[in-house]
């Protein structure tokens, strides 16, 4: 199980990399592993305002549809457009090439609700099937 120590995590299996007043968001290794081969991804346009816990997009694997949830509230300032044509990157490199959006967050206090790597590890092992 790959859970980078420097990232923050949601209960819906998104990761967030905090840098200044923005976060980069993707889905975790565990999430892509559970989904199986990802074949479709739908992301918001830059400029979209997202709300913590609300859906900002969709990933679909050969078998299932899964919503994406914003880890924090804020404005989407950049979108990884390359993913639309290469959704398999989500399986290959979930923490790198398969980043999804960058969000300029509006409330730094919301970051404290995210899990650190140790807590996420614990969360995944306790909820494992």
């Amino acid at each position: 199980m790959s859970i980078p120590a420097e990232l923050k995590y949601t209960k819906d299996h998104e990761w967030a990399r905090v840098s200044g007043d923005t976060i980069t968001v993707g889905i975790t290794f565990h999430a892509q592993d559970q989904l199986g081969d990802v074949v479709f991804v739908e992301l918001p346009k830059a400029g979209t305002v997202v709300r913590k816990g609300a859906t900002f997009g969709v990933v679909e694997s050969t078998k299932a549809v899964s919503d994406l949830y914003a880890p924090v509230s804020g404005k989407v300032i950049e979108v990884n457009e390359a993913l639309a044509d290469a959704p398999e990157q989500i399986n290959k490199d979930p923490y790198g090439a398969a980043w999804m959006i960058k969000v300029e967050f509006s409330d730094a206090g919301e970051l404290s609700s995210l899990m650190d790597a140790a807590a996420y590890q614990e969360y995944v092992s306790s909820s494992a099937p």
């Binding site: 199986g36 081969d37 074949v39 694997s61 050969t62 078998k63 399986n91």
Partner: peptide, 9 residues
């Protein structure tokens, strides 16, 4: 089993 290596493979 729904898959081993992966559906596409």
């Amino acid at each position: 089993p729904v898959q081993y290596e992966g559906v596409i493979a």
